[in-house]
Design a protein around this nucleic acid. Sequence first.
DNA 1: TCGAAGCCCTAGATCGTTCTAATAACGTTT
DNA 2: AAACGTTATTAGAACGATCTAGGGCTTCGA
Lengths: 345, 345
Amino acid sequence: MTDQRRRPTLVDVAHAAGVSRALVSIVMRGAPGAAESTRQKVLEAARELGYRPDSRARLLRSSRTKLLGLSFSSSQPFHAEIVDAAYAAASAKGYEIALSAVANGRPETRAIESLLDFGSEAIILISPTLSNQDLAGYARQVPIVSLLRDDVDEHVDSVRSDNYAGIRMAVDHLTGLGHRRIVHVDGGLAVAANERRAAFRIEMLRHRLEPVIVPGGPDEEDGVRASHFLKANIPSAVIAFNDRSALGLMQSLRASGLQVPRDVSVLGYDDSQFARLSYVQLSSISQDAPLLAAGAVDSAVDRIEGTRSPTRVVRTPHLVVRKTTAAPVQASCRSARQSASHSTP
Amino acid sequence: MTDQRRRPTLVDVAHAAGVSRALVSIVMRGAPGAAESTRQKVLEAARELGYRPDSRARLLRSSRTKLLGLSFSSSQPFHAEIVDAAYAAASAKGYEIALSAVANGRPETRAIESLLDFGSEAIILISPTLSNQDLAGYARQVPIVSLLRDDVDEHVDSVRSDNYAGIRMAVDHLTGLGHRRIVHVDGGLAVAANERRAAFRIEMLRHRLEPVIVPGGPDEEDGVRASHFLKANIPSAVIAFNDRSALGLMQSLRASGLQVPRDVSVLGYDDSQFARLSYVQLSSISQDAPLLAAGAVDSAVDRIEGTRSPTRVVRTPHLVVRKTTAAPVQASCRSARQSASHSTP
DNA sequence: TCGAAGCCCTAGATCGTTCTAATAACGTTT
DNA sequence: AAACGTTATTAGAACGATCTAGGGCTTCGA
């Protein structure tokens, strides 16, 4: 029943078109050196037979694979946005993308090996968690681009968003609205957490404000946990490590009777799809996934095609103001807010 | 600077170990027919040289690639859970997974072609959107497994969750709690929407209740939109098409002053990571992603290894009760609830 | 008129494996 | 000692493409 007939090869096409294998090869890969008339004849025959070149054979012979490996974490929605954008960026440059997910029982090394097996000419890692030593090891075999993390070995390219600038925009935005008691719920051990924490401290001091930092993490539950620390002494604004953390934080604050942004302004980071939801409307710092993805693809392709040595690329994020940040309420309301915070145990 | 020396091949290893290529091949793939002593000698030499078999060449020669193609939609968190589980299921069966995303400018056909290029021996499509005709076309080249959708061509395998049973559990759960005015916010054009809608109608009638169905869709915004239809006449319980829709719905209901589950019980579908969040605690029907993924991998492998003809597999979902469903409040409170619903414009 | 220069085209080697079939080595049986 | 099995090893042909080197054929300038 299964009509699993052998898939046609170059030879079949050559035979059908009445030419040699080599000529079919030339036509199929669009190389110069075939008369227009025969080119048409060959293409016709190929279409007729439903021929599609066997990439294994093709790649075995010509060392070029035109393939970029991309590893991402299946549980991170922000990674998904980058994946989307990377497909577009790669195909614009004439490359295909090989994906490999880092998941629960599947460490990053496994993902990389798999990408190498597919024949990737360069590998882009989103937020790599490997040690610099391991990264350097792989970088000896193939160009590696680290996306979102840049404290990497000198042989590894990196593309990231300027976390310092992002936090500066965040602080400027909130102080500009008139906030003075601003708290940063940090990212714990997450990749960019250190940098954002440090930037927050510096920027707050620059504004002559006290930089209060509360331990957090990259997901919703971390935001919820952090909110408990805040309740004893509610700030007028919070800068969360990312949108997911901000979401958990807001839910938890609202559950204890506070309103956003009336009582507390909340600012996210990433400008993910959650931030854009009509009932969330989270103000956020956008890292611009398409821009980052394009940057990573550019770096990878440059390394493959040129003999360039690794570069560090830094992109500037931008602020997206929605409805969770606003000017703080006046002193009269402030007392009401404080009594509310006292009423919670 | 770049230490890009030619990677070692079988010949290099053979030379180093003082044996023939064929013997190295035998040892490397763990085939029987080599003396233990030479086996050790070869392995030692391979390790010494850092040899790793070239999969392209290997796969070119032996038609087996041990590769399963998996296409998913990057914007669907539920797909990500399946991807995770599929990796585990595949590697348990000795297969590797090739991923390809369906994204904005990247149609399903493109994803499939790419998977074929990688040499996938079978392809699993999560919620395929292609026409049956197109699917049948691909099924002629390679075994195709449709995951979550089963109105497919007879040459295509399918694995899905029993939507009818899921909705039955949902209705039974809510009626068991004492609800009588239950509304279904449907999935619009989404894959399983028709089936769930029909099941809801039948099950409600079986309980001698009026099956009220409100148009919805697969994501948060659809839930928000649906909530507007509900406000004129608040039901005591809602069965949403999926968790994302339920989330939007709940947020919108809460925004208009209603409490879940005190005023309205809300039941989701998918039991996704959102449902599990501490501040959401959404009761939901679980389709059990790991089970579905394993089912799809099993079907694919069966088709590849046996000469079995396509099958339809149906898995039974199960109910996960959390905190968004509860018994309806008594008549005394009911009047309070109704006045609340009237107070909203 | 003849060699040089292009343009089209093809034969054959090659990429790094696996597979088939044949050979070598060696202990057992007749 | 010849015949036989068994096991260990190898040479050489695939796999399906690309690449290199060259072979016809026209066209052109001297």
